[in-house]
Design a protein around this nucleic acid. Sequence first.
DNA 1: CTGTTAGCGCGTTCAG
DNA 2: CTGAACGCGCTAACAG
Lengths: 329, 329
Amino acid sequence: MVSIKDVAKHAGVAISTVSKVLNNYPNVSEETKRKVNQAVEELNFVPNSVAAALSSKQSGRVALLLNLNTKTQAIDEIVMQYISGAINKAMEMGLDVITFFFSMFEDKSPEEMTRYLKAQSIHGLIIYGMSKDDKVLQELIASQEFKAVLVDAPICNRNTSSVWVNQEQAQYDVAKKTIIENNCKKVLYIAGKRNGYVTEERLRGIKRLAEEMNLSLFIKHGEFSELQARNITFRYAKNRDVIVCSSDLMAIGAMRALMEMDIFRPVCGFDGITLMGYAGKQMNTIRQNFAGISATAVEELHYLMNGGEGRERILEYTIERMKYMDIIC
Amino acid sequence: MVSIKDVAKHAGVAISTVSKVLNNYPNVSEETKRKVNQAVEELNFVPNSVAAALSSKQSGRVALLLNLNTKTQAIDEIVMQYISGAINKAMEMGLDVITFFFSMFEDKSPEEMTRYLKAQSIHGLIIYGMSKDDKVLQELIASQEFKAVLVDAPICNRNTSSVWVNQEQAQYDVAKKTIIENNCKKVLYIAGKRNGYVTEERLRGIKRLAEEMNLSLFIKHGEFSELQARNITFRYAKNRDVIVCSSDLMAIGAMRALMEMDIFRPVCGFDGITLMGYAGKQMNTIRQNFAGISATAVEELHYLMNGGEGRERILEYTIERMKYMDIIC
DNA sequence: CTGTTAGCGCGTTCAG
DNA sequence: CTGAACGCGCTAACAG
């Protein structure tokens, strides 16, 4: 394996000079830069990121922490897009990404988790799907031992940034469209997981809408589960004239229940997953660019890891698939 | 950060002794083992895998190479299960996993790829979804520069193992069941991707069945795309009395086409993805345990990396969801 | 602006 | 059976 030493020898300079050139440090003459780069080319040198990580204490090793909700497997698509968006962007930016799942740390204390991550020379975290109930993660973030970027969880401190879609506005918009199109008054809102950040934001959105349009709003928590949404629909849909769901998966559950009940109610989803295409029916939904959000999170982490301060960033979202079709078979 | 040095001091032994205890080397007295382990406990020592990787030349850093087919996003579930199965198992076994996608290496030569991976101190590869067309990977494997485990691609050499479901038999079984249940004679078989290993294995299965049962077999390649399967069905289903698909996604495409054509034909899928539950109709399909396959692959790689020889392993598969329901709405 | 040197944390001889 | 010493490839002061 060709090392930085070989490059130095080949270019006729010192090791540290090569290192400086590679890492874009100042105070290197154009001439030596050229020589070094040429040597790198000729020898096909690829820097060893593991050695860099060991040496540097400020390296580009980053952990991807994913909340894989095994109860609702159908959201795999979202997680998958998060993963690929993050990994692709990270590769582009020269960061090393290690993927983890929340479940791996279930029985661990914040201290144990910190030790574990530090032992991996990890200095940055990207966290997806955290809720208020994830005590360990909450503490981990509060400790500020790592630079972190949260996706769709609005926590922000000196070492922590947050990247999110404006869930409140999105829920407001998509629900409004559905309700106006169908001229409804009595909303059954199937919310997500209690203590989930996105759930609460979306709730705020629907509440604002209800107030503004003077709607009757009935709220139930479906825990992002198709089955629960289905049961809720069976139980409460009859007296309502529209069903707004806090996720596409729950919207599927609702639609199926309606079909079995053989009644028609407009249904409104949220995420915009491809899966919806297989559910047989169309409905209003947001289209979120999960991979894009993820890529932004990586950029944000990079910024943080290079001395930036934590900040919040709200992403744009677009509303698509606004065509509404009859739900009855 | 507490290092091996601190442990050594705390236990009153030398650094190398601690290392030996940690890595289960022989020639350490029970007494010192005990002392060391106690020190590890007391100090909450977690070995630094990065330093180990740099030092050892034979470390546990493993790359997960995934073929994310962007054309058919709906198989995210399968990829997701591969990822989580592998990562969980790897964590259990103390391996470091770095996730990559084929697309990242599209424009690279085998040499570049080798350099890149070596620069990451990676010594093992787990590869999902490789086909005969992936020249770079084929060469990479042939070069035997890395220990590798292929999932569902039957290549095997001294440094390469293969872990696969018996696709041929599975296709035979599931199709047979469907055909017997519905008493069919004229099969439309929608195959997967040309030059894909699994595609060819499954093709062999259906051919064997056709021969045995004296069926008329008409084969078309659907490239694992729902749309193509749909088009194929529109075009050829009329004169056939059963449609056997080489993947669930294509089966969905076929079912929808049939629905629109308003004709009934039994449809047979393959993978057993949850998604099928949302397609509205039931059909015969295999149920593969993707996470389990993945975990086996990790074990196999571990075995290889510790001096084992490449070997092929066929997993069991189970057939479920054998209930067939009328496809007409 | 460039080169020398000391670690990062661990694995691995090889004397004792 | 134990421990001192070296090196993995690189970064980061510090001299020059």
